[in-house]
């Protein structure tokens, strides 16, 4: 398996949710603020449970919070298969 690109819209979603702070989101999802910072900066990919919890806070489907893409060379390989 090769590299995958997982990006997120948490910063944008927080902005549209009355400029929710990172601490507010952390409190609502039961994690530390540092974890939210790490997720937003792409330094940590949350578990499925936490991902769903974040989506639940913003009342949006999971794929609106996180998006998944294969790295370009991987995409080519998977198409060939």
């Amino acid at each position: 398996m090769g590299k995958a690109i997982i990006s997120n819209n948490i910063r944008r979603l927080r902005f549209f949710a009355s400029e929710m702070t990172q601490q507010d989101l952390a409190d609502k999802t039961g994690v530390s603020r540092q974890t939210i910072v790490a997720i937003e900066n792409g330094k940590y990919f949350p578990t499925l449970e936490l991902a769903f919890r974040i989506a639940l806070v913003f009342q949006v489907p999971l794929n609106e919070v996180f998006s998944f893409e294969l790295a370009p060379e991987m995409e080519k390989k998977s198409r060939e298969k």
Binding site: V31, S32, R33, Q34, T35, A38, P46, E49
Partner: peptide, 8 residues
């Protein structure tokens, strides 16, 4: 005393 979560 920050909480220990899944990342920690």
């Amino acid at each position: 005393d920050p909480i220990d979560d899944e990342r920690d």
